[in-house]
């Protein structure tokens, strides 16, 4: 095996892939949230629709977005691989009594990253089918701003956010993303070896804040829409 493939398939290499793709997705979430916040501008969806058009047509963004899809897939597939390998390492016989001691991290979440990630992945599939697929494959009404035709993504978003079932699904999914982040954020630094007596407490604090605030931001938007439309 060549040294690079060996590196990427080693236990630490695999975790490194999880860490780097995870960090990329963490940054993406922030960008995504900033975009979504434009839904709250009371202009009938103009800012949001223009933003959506920019995101789907700008060549740089387009290029980055392919990276994003690849990273989501890589993160998910690698995650499942790790899950399978770890199960194998654990062996067939489990412990009859399960007990845990308080640890330095949120062990309950850390242990369930595979399951949480799978839930997040399912959410992503539904989420992308609902909005991203529609945006990409047309089939959307069209709005004209300053003489330019723009897909009206705002319309299906508004429709979806008026549906209590969907709002709940969205909010609960954000809870899972929050939990996934709660561990993932600080864990990615530990995996990269970025650990320091002085800075690690700050990273942990930032991770926890991020894991609460970002999903909260995402979840507030449908709630606000729903309340407004009641």
């Amino acid at each position: 095996m060549n040294w690079f493939t060996k590196f990427l398939t080693s236990s630490i290499g695999r975790k490194l892939i999880m860490s780097l793709t995870g960090l990329f997705l963490i940054v993406f979430l922030l960008v995504h949230l900033i975009g979504n916040l434009q839904l709250l501008i009371p202009d009938g969806g103009e800012a949001f629709n223009l933003y959506a058009k920019f995101m789907t047509t700008n060549p740089v963004i387009k290029f980055t977005s392919y990276g994003l899809y690849a990273f989501i897939l890589l993160h998910a597939v690698q995650g499942w691989l790790l899950w399978a390998k770890n199960r194998k390492a654990r062996g067939g016989q489990g412990y009859a009594v399960q007990a845990t001691r308080a640890t330095g991290t949120n062990a309950g979440i850390a242990k369930r990253m595979g399951a949480l990630g799978t839930i997040v992945f399912i959410f992503l599939v539904i989420h992308m089918g609902q909005f991203w697929f529609k945006m990409k494959m047309g089939d959307l009404p069209v709005q004209i701003y300053d003489g330019v035709e723009v897909n009206d993504l705002y319309a299906p978003v508004k429709a979806a956010f008026s549906n209590i079932g969907f709002v709940l699904f969205y909010v609960i999914s954000m809870l899972f993303i929050g939990m996934h982040l709660m561990h993932g954020f600080q864990s990615s630094f530990q995996t990269l070896g970025l650990n320091h007596q002085k800075y690690t407490p700050f990273i942990k604090f930032l991770g926890n804040a991020y894991a609460v605030l970002i999903p909260l931001g995402f979840a507030l938007i449908p709630i606000i829409f729903f309340v407004k439309n009641m």
Binding site: S11, K85, R101, A102, A110, K111, M113, H183, Q190
Partner: peptide, 25 residues
């Protein structure tokens, strides 16, 4: 055939010599 680290830190909590996961980083 050992598994990979998910930074759960159960190892540190159960280690009778309380060795820190800082070593893993």
């Amino acid at each position: 055939g050992f598994g990979m680290c998910s930074n759960i830190t159960a190892c540190e909590a159960e280690c009778p010599k309380e060795i820190s996961v800082d070593n893993i980083a």
